[in-house]
Computed example of a mutant assay.
Amino acid sequence: MEEILLLSSVLAPVVLALVELVKRTINLKKNFIPMVSLVIGLLIGAAAYPFTDFDLAMRLWSGGLAGMAGTGLFELFKKNEGYTKQKDKRI
């Protein structure tokens, strides 16, 4: 299990960069971005064959985790401006 997490942590920045590239080149609705991130993660995980001796299922798990983490990583560092859903500005 540690190997899967290690590979997914290595793949997550790559997936993040590719998702950002797709977002900037193709006009997508925001609802589809996590699904695109998951698919890209799975594809990158499957393509990681020369870099690891894992079987396909373990590489797909790593890629899927990297895809989900890539979306979360982007949302973590994204600058959110504006107000919360509350209409009252008092704290």
Results as ranks from 00 to 15, higher is better:
residue 48 A to P: 00
residue 41 G to E: 00
residue 45 G to A: 00
residue 47 A to F: 14
residue 47 A to L: 15
residue 6 L to W: 04
residue 30 K to F: 12
residue 83 Y to P: 05
residue 70 G to H: 01
residue 46 A to H: 10
residue 6 L to M: 07
residue 12 A to M: 11
residue 41 G to H: 01
residue 1 M to T: 13
residue 25 T to P: 03
residue 91 I to D: 06
residue 36 V to C: 03
residue 73 L to D: 04
residue 34 P to V: 08
residue 41 G to T: 00
residue 85 K to F: 14
residue 90 R to P: 04
residue 13 P to D: 13
residue 53 D to G: 08
residue 43 L to Y: 11
residue 37 S to D: 00
residue 82 G to H: 08
residue 88 D to H: 06
residue 81 E to R: 14
residue 57 A to S: 13
residue 16 L to W: 05
residue 44 I to D: 01
residue 73 L to W: 07
residue 61 W to N: 09
residue 14 V to S: 14
residue 44 I to M: 12
residue 44 I to G: 03
residue 48 A to T: 01
residue 71 T to I: 08
residue 23 K to N: 07
residue 7 L to C: 08
residue 44 I to R: 00
residue 87 K to T: 06
residue 11 L to Y: 01
residue 7 L to K: 02
residue 58 M to W: 09
residue 61 W to S: 13
residue 39 V to D: 01
residue 82 G to A: 15
residue 39 V to Q: 01
residue 54 F to I: 05
residue 53 D to S: 15
residue 41 G to N: 04
residue 53 D to H: 11
residue 53 D to V: 04
residue 2 E to K: 12
residue 30 K to G: 12
residue 4 I to E: 04
residue 88 D to Q: 10
residue 13 P to S: 09
residue 21 L to G: 08
residue 77 F to K: 06
residue 61 W to K: 12
residue 9 S to R: 11
residue 27 N to S: 11
residue 10 V to P: 04
residue 39 V to F: 02
residue 68 M to E: 11
residue 2 E to I: 10
residue 65 L to I: 06
residue 48 A to I: 00
residue 19 V to N: 02
residue 39 V to C: 03
residue 12 A to F: 03
residue 67 G to D: 03
residue 91 I to R: 13
residue 19 V to Q: 01
residue 51 F to C: 06
residue 49 Y to H: 10
residue 42 L to N: 04
residue 69 A to Q: 03
residue 80 N to Q: 14
residue 48 A to S: 14
residue 18 L to G: 01
residue 19 V to A: 04
residue 91 I to A: 10
residue 39 V to K: 00
residue 9 S to C: 06
residue 74 F to I: 06
residue 59 R to P: 06
residue 78 K to H: 10
residue 17 A to M: 07
residue 50 P to G: 12
residue 24 R to I: 07
residue 19 V to Y: 02
residue 29 K to S: 15
residue 52 T to I: 12
residue 40 I to V: 12
residue 60 L to I: 11
residue 28 L to W: 07
residue 31 N to L: 12
residue 8 S to D: 06
residue 54 F to A: 09
residue 38 L to K: 05
residue 9 S to K: 13
residue 73 L to A: 15
residue 2 E to H: 14
residue 35 M to P: 04
residue 18 L to F: 09
residue 65 L to R: 03
residue 52 T to R: 10
residue 38 L to V: 12
residue 41 G to S: 08
residue 44 I to W: 02
residue 17 A to T: 04
residue 32 F to C: 13
residue 85 K to W: 10
residue 53 D to I: 05
residue 44 I to Y: 03
residue 16 L to D: 00
residue 37 S to I: 02
residue 16 L to Y: 05
residue 10 V to T: 07
